[in-house]
Design a protein around this nucleic acid. Structure first.
Lengths: 343, 343
DNA sequence: GTGAAAGCGCTAACAC
DNA sequence: GTGTTAGCGCTTTCAC
């Protein structure tokens, strides 16, 4: 009986390959990087690589090239929206030979810094992130040091970065326009934390629609639920406790809409008979809800496409172009959660 | 007016730090790695590091240490379930100073190989993945080469890996038990691709429940929708077209349940009056659905915890223990989507 | 085209 | 404890 191999064989290096193929390491390196090689050498090297099961050590390579083919993604949490984006992002990134390193910071400054440090230490080629007001100042030094960042979703003005945004204000206006067109005049908005540009944009869209319809804004119908499901729930309750409650509600993201929905359901307020509801963020479950929830879906695929195209340009040769900002439209899907108000 | 600095300063290296602090690089390295250092040196080094904005180059470090603090995650797609797991995983990983590199392979062998190559080339410390029959043979060589893998969700028997699974069979049985307890006798299952162990387990659980209740299995009520929403939709239609349609349906994952739900909704079949429905996979939207959908939620948090604890042990000192398999129970939440059948 | 050789930034062994 | 030094595996001059 032969001895069992316990220790794992040291992976083959470029030197092993060179030796076995009878060429210099430089030649192997050139082969690996697709540079011209004499036919005979090429075949021999290819064969040896196969025999030895050689695989280039990316860490060693990046020490010379200063590129890792890894892009960092910094998100508050991997929820509905960011997960969908990540999904599209990894796929498109794959085409360009890159993968995404995911760090979620939980909206905690410490974790945020850890993430940035991790990315910087590992020399990721770029970092893609959802802006967050708390992070602005902390981010600046990294950018100054040369970190490539592309912001999406929430903006952090004044930072030197590329940007990919959704036309939140416009989509939001459209959603509320729809409700207003149906004759509603008391439409409430449950919005997110106003430190986030996305929350402000969606609120502005709401106001735009009101103005366009000549409907006055009622401050008591504008409530802040901080993007949070539970607060969406309580806000919905507050709204309904008003002497003159709204006839329609706009939940400015998935979580808050779910919270609102939960409150309405628990209190037997039916949609759309008793109240109309529209939501920012669309999910499959909204379409099978009874009634279906009218919502605007985030254009995650287009966002991912935009992000990757920016990255590709910037990480390619002559990537020193000016910073870019791209804005993408979001589609609204009409379903049965709103009804026409009798006059 | 001073010249504007165009070129980015080369990041400080450990040599710069050593020089500025007047000590040897070895000393700085020891400081960086938390080894004992004389007080005076410690402070000086700390200060210099701060002044120079020095940051350890992880790539260089990993060339010596052979560890990157990066764990690869290979998933078919970042949907509901995997996203939730990723969320928990990144958080727990963070505690151990690691981040997760995400690659999604779309169930395509080519992409799968690319992912493995990427991980291997980048020398990730370990790879966490959802098993998939197509990948078994391709994975084996990597494991033989020493790749550390932990499997979750679907099993790939015989591979040398750690494993973290959900008690799919048991949870599934409980779900069907519940329906059977209510007096149903024609309960259908819309299951996933049976090449996946998870699909087989959930189907077995269904059968266990049938047997336990002395209810015969009707082959026409067992349909394969390959995990897919659209096929969940068509299968639901097929089921309802049966001469003797089921009085209850079990959707074996989120996608298929949504598909089934959509069919029922479009054809005005109401739940639970006309048919009862239960689902594997739970989402917030299920709880606000009318009626609420009875479902079993995946224990993603516990899974992440298990995965990280395995990783921590194995990547720590003396990580050569035997492979482990952990099984985690899933909880079922009763809501209103089932009703008692009158006898 | 190709070989030889100089590093990239770090850790670990070794003497002191 | 600390300094010195030999690599880790690769890319990239530079001659030829």
């Amino acid at each position: 009986m032969t001895d069992q191999v316990i220790t794992r064989a040291r992976p083959a290096t470029i030197i092993d390959v060179a030796r076995a193929a009878g060429v210099a390491v430089g030649t192997v390196s050139r082969y690996l990087n697709g540079q011209p090689i004499r036919g005979g050498n090429r075949d021999r090297i290819a064969q040896v690589i196969d025999e030895l099961g050689y695989r280039r050590n990316s860490a060693a390579a990046s020490m010379k090239t200063n590129t890792t083919h890894i892009v960092g993604l910094l998100v508050p949490a991997v929820g509905e929206f960011h997960a969908a984006l990540l999904d599209r992002l990894t796929r498109r990134m794959r085409q360009t030979g890159r993968a995404v390193l995911c760090y979620c910071h939980d909206t905690e400054p410490t974790s945020f810094m850890e993430g940035l440090e991790f990315f910087a230490g590992h020399r990721v080629d770029a970092v893609v992130m959802d802006g967050n007001e708390d992070l602005r100042q902390r981010l600046a030094p990294y950018i100054a040091e040369g970190m490539l960042v592309v912001l999406y979703d929430n903006d952090l003005p004044e930072l030197s970065a590329d940007r990919v945004f959704v036309e939140n204000r416009r989509a939001s206006k459209r959603l509320v326009d729809h409700v207003l067109d149906l004759g509603h005049e008391r439409v409430a908005i449950i919005h997110g934390n106003l430190r986030d540009s996305v929350a402000r944009d969606r609120l502005e869209g709401y106001r735009d629609a009101l103005k366009a319809h000549g409907v006055p804004e009622h401050p008591e119908l504008v409530v802040d639920a901080g993007w949070n499901e539970y607060r969406g729930y309580t806000c919905m309750g507050d709204l309904m406790a008003l002497p003159n409650p709204p006839t329609a509600v706009f939940g400015a993201n998935y979580n808050m809409s779910i919270g609102a929905l939960r409150w309405l359901r628990e209190h037997d307020v039916s949609i759309p008979e008793d109240i109309s509801l529209v939501s920012f963020d669309d999910v499959p479950a909204f379409s099978v809800h009874s009634p279906g929830i009218t919502a605007v879906g985030q254009p995650v695929d287009k966002m991912a496409e935009a992000i990757v195209s920016i990255l590709t340009e910037r990480l390619g040769p002559n990537g020193a172009l000016g910073k870019r900002t791209m804005r993408i439209d979001a589609e609204i899907t009409l379903r049965g959660s709103t009804r026409r108000l009798r006059r």
